[in-house]
C-alpha cells in the first residue's frame, strides 16, 4: 500500500468515531500495540525535541527502504508515533519526503491537541522527514 492509501485508511478509521474519547481510545490502543525500542536505544540522539513527554524515533535503512521504530513514556504520544510509523515505515526515503500529511487535519487531531502537543507532533514528522532526507542523499 502506498503512503497515500495508508493515510486514507487512517482517516476512514477515525470517521467511525463520533466521540473524542473513542478517538483517544483508538490512539491509545495503537500506542499499546506498538513495539517499543530497546532501553539502550533511548538515547539523546533518538529523542524527538519539542515533545511534552519523551518520544524516541529510531530509523533504519534496509534495501533502500526506510523503517522506523518509535517509543514514548506516555501512551498518547506513543499512539500518535505509532500512526506515523504505520504511515511512513518501510517506504523509499524520497516517497516519505514527498508526502504531505493531511490526516492530522482530517481526523481533527490538530484542534484537539494543545499547541505544545501539536508542536510535538510536528516535531515527530519533521524528524522522520529529516531522516528521509538524509537517507535519500546517501543512497
Amino acid at each position: 500500500m502506498s503512503i497515500k492509501d495508508i493515510e486514507l485508511n487512517l482517516i476512514e478509521d477515525f470517521e467511525l468515531f463520533d466521540d473524542w474519547m473513542d478517538k483517544y481510545n483508538y490512539i491509545i490502543g495503537m500506542g499499546k500495540e506498538l513495539d517499543g525500542i530497546e532501553e539502550d536505544e533511548k538515547i539523546q540522539d533518538n529523542l524527538v525535541s519539542g515533545c511534552t513527554s519523551q518520544v524516541w524515533l529510531v530509523p533504519q535503512l534496509i534495501d533502500d527502504r526506510l523503517y522506523f521504530k518509535a517509543d514514548s513514556d506516555a501512551l498518547i504520544p506513543k499512539g500518535i508515533a505509532a500512526m506515523l510509523v504505520k504511515l511512513y515505515s518501510g517506504n523509499p526515503p524520497q516517497e516519505i519526503l514527498d508526502h504531505k500529511p493531511e490526516f492530522i487535519k482530517k481526523i481533527g487531531l490538530e484542534q484537539h491537541l494543545s499547541p505544545n502537543r501539536a508542536n510535538g507532533l510536528a516535531s515527530m514528522i519533521n524528524k522522520m522527514k529529516s531522516y528521509a532526507e538524509y537517507y535519500s542523499k546517501i543512497k
Binding site: 513527554s53 513514556d73 506516555a74 501512551l75 498518547i76 494543545s114
Partner: peptide, 10 residues
C-alpha cells in the same frame, strides 16, 4: 503518565 492523564481529562 501524567501527560496522558491530563490530556484525557482535558
Amino acid at each position: 503518565h501524567h501527560y496522558d492523564l491530563s490530556t484525557l481529562l482535558d
